[in-house]
Design a binder for these strands. Structure first.
Lengths: 121, 121
DNA sequence: CGGTATCCAAAGTGATACTG
DNA sequence: CAGTATCACTTTGGATACCG
């Protein structure tokens, strides 16, 4: 059985405290400026935002477009290739939703992990 | 658009340096004793193995069965519920495999992340 | 055999100040 | 505006010793 040998590397691309929410934002809003992402994700700081975006860019998930003007303008969006993630994200999302239910059944209303105090997408 | 809101929590269950390889082992071999897992994953130590197994157990992915005898015998396996992960794992694996190709095209043979020096599954 | 306890190192994250 | 640099802090992972 040689399947299931690449899912570690797949995971390594999605991990990072802010990558999921960044992807969510870009998926939902299409193209966003750096400052728009900052506003949409209030708890993140520039260092983290930059870092996580760069990692996603390195993997060709996110596209970064720089307009050489002043004040600077940099726009981020999901790359064409990056859109291929949607299947995986959907699978993860579906399972995650079902699992939240399952945990509730097992332990009662006891699923932490809900820092989405801000506005829903 | 309210989809894609649970995939963070899904990810949070799969992360951890050893969870993927533990799941792989249990998927491939069915039921394994603690010591068998240790032998199959030589670089892990007891503390980590125990910890990651407990987290998987908490989420009902892995089943832990204790035989009260001496010497002790504890067996681990993927729970029935945990088998529902296979779809997600497969999706992640497929995308991960394709992505390795993509990275190779972009950057040449330059994809690190291959500590699988040991025996293949 | 199958752990737990303790301590230490490393990686990840955050706050703040500065820059082109 | 969109970063980078530096330092402090927190979380995670590893080594070792001990326990039921």
């Amino acid at each position: 059985m040689k399947q299931y040998c690449k899912f570690e590397s797949a995971l390594s691309i999605l991990v990072g405290k802010w990558k999921p929410v960044i992807l969510l934002q870009l998926i939902a809003n299409g193209t966003m400026r750096f400052s728009e992402l900052q506003k949409a994700i209030p708890d993140i700081n520039k260092r983290m935002l930059t870092q996580q975006l760069r990692e996603l860019e390195y993997h060709d998930i996110v596209r970064r477009e720089v307009y050489n003007q002043v004040p600077p303008r940099v726009e981020y969006s999901i790359s064409e290739y990056g859109k291929g993630l949607s299947t995986v994200l959907q699978a993860l999302n579906d399972w995650g939703a079902a699992h939240a239910q399952h945990m509730e059944v097992l332990y009662g209303t006891d699923h932490e992990e809900n820092q989405s105090g801000g506005g829903g997408i």
